[in-house]
């Protein structure tokens, strides 16, 4: 009780500090909070922007939630996104003659495969050789990033800028009819219940959770540690890889060298706030993306510096974490 009260006090203190900074920067904190909240719903195009930004974060977060439930701290989702973009996009470039259905499915599947392979690498290292997946997945980000840079600067380069040629029409993701958003959103939304099913309702999910709760007990119970870790990391990477290829195909339209966006780290926050639960991941992603999208608005509407906005976002997330802790104790 005492502890939770202290936690609330910390939360309030943090919130007051941010308000003070916002006031010092010459803006009204209530107005800032309101503007952030309403931005996504202000216009159809804002809402579309919001959904487009939500798609990759939701996918990556779902992937991380799988790994985290197994005690596998995959912090290299950015590397797996890049791997997905390279494999899916690299093949996609060659698919100009294919029917669109084939092109789209091929690109998405190959993106997932690329990410899965990159994730599985960390899984094998952890499961078979005991190498920390935290280190290996983090370091593999750089490996993936340099491979990508090499590819778009040399063999795949098209034109003056370090980027590939445009991806053919046959790989363009279909748009939803209701809003001007590609089907990646549906895929991301579909992964949420799949995550719940997989982790809480399948034997694999049970073994995964056993691994996460106690590797020792899992091993002594005959659970194949290496296989479970590898599959979990592969699934985790597959989600990230698909997010990577979706961004490449639907947003950039070509393979660019600036894929290493730090989205994987934002997703870590999402998963922790969500306590690795599927519905929580959906809500937390929605919240974090709202902060990002709304943050851009308040730079204009409230004249806030671009540097203060990320700070507000960080504190807002801290407040959520603090309140979550309170709910737990």
């Amino acid at each position: 009780m005492m502890a939770s009260r202290a936690v609330v006090r910390v939360g309030i203190a943090l919130f007051l500090i941010v308000s003070a900074v916002v006031i010092a920067a010459g803006a009204n904190p209530f107005s800032v909070a309101w503007n952030i909240t309403r931005t996504p719903f202000e216009s159809v195009s804002n809402f579309e922007q919001y959904l487009l930004a939500l798609t990759p974060l939701l996918l990556v977060s779902c992937g991380l939630a799988i790994a985290f439930r197994g005690g596998l701290y995959n912090i290299g989702a950015d590397g797996q996104m890049i791997a997905g973009a390279i494999v899916g996009g690299g093949v996609g470039i060659e698919l100009s003659g294919a029917p669109r259905l084939v092109g789209v499915v091929a690109v998405l599947v190959l993106g997932a495969v690329g990410g899965a392979a990159w994730g599985a690498l960390s899984g094998v290292l952890r499961g078979r050789y005991g190498v920390s997946e935290v280190l290996s997945s983090l370091l593999l980000i750089f490996v993936a990033d340099f491979i990508l840079r090499y590819l778009v600067r040399d063999p795949w380069r098209d034109g003056f800028l370090p980027q590939s040629a445009r991806l053919p029409e046959s790989t363009k993701l279909p748009e939803l009819q209701v809003v001007d958003v590609h089907i990646g959103l549906l895929i991301a939304l579909a992964v949420v219940p799949l995550l719940w099913l997989l982790v809480d309702h399948t034997p694999f999910g049970f073994r995964l959770q056993a691994l996460g709760a106690s590797e020792e007990v899992a091993r002594a119970s005959g659970i194949a540690i290496a296989r479970t870790a590898t599959v979990a990391m592969a699934l985790s990477g597959a989600c990230a890889g698909m997010a990577g290829v979706i961004q490449t195909v639907a947003i950039e339209g070509r393979i660019v060298q600036s894929l290493n966006s730090g989205l994987g780290f934002t997703a870590i926050v999402v998963v922790l706030v969500a306590r690795m639960r599927a519905l929580g991941v959906l809500l937390a992603s929605a919240f974090v993306v709202m902060l990002t999208v709304g943050g851009e608005t308040v730079q204009r509407s409230d004249g806030l510096s671009a540097f203060i906005v990320p700070m507000i976002q960080a504190v807002a997330i801290l407040v959520v974490l603090v309140m979550d802790q309170q709910g737990r104790s």
Partner: peptide, 19 residues
Amino acid sequence: RSGVIGSWSVERNLALLTI
């Protein structure tokens, strides 16, 4: 250490081998 997962319920611990 290697017999039961303390934070888990009895039923889940009982299901470890058979799940």
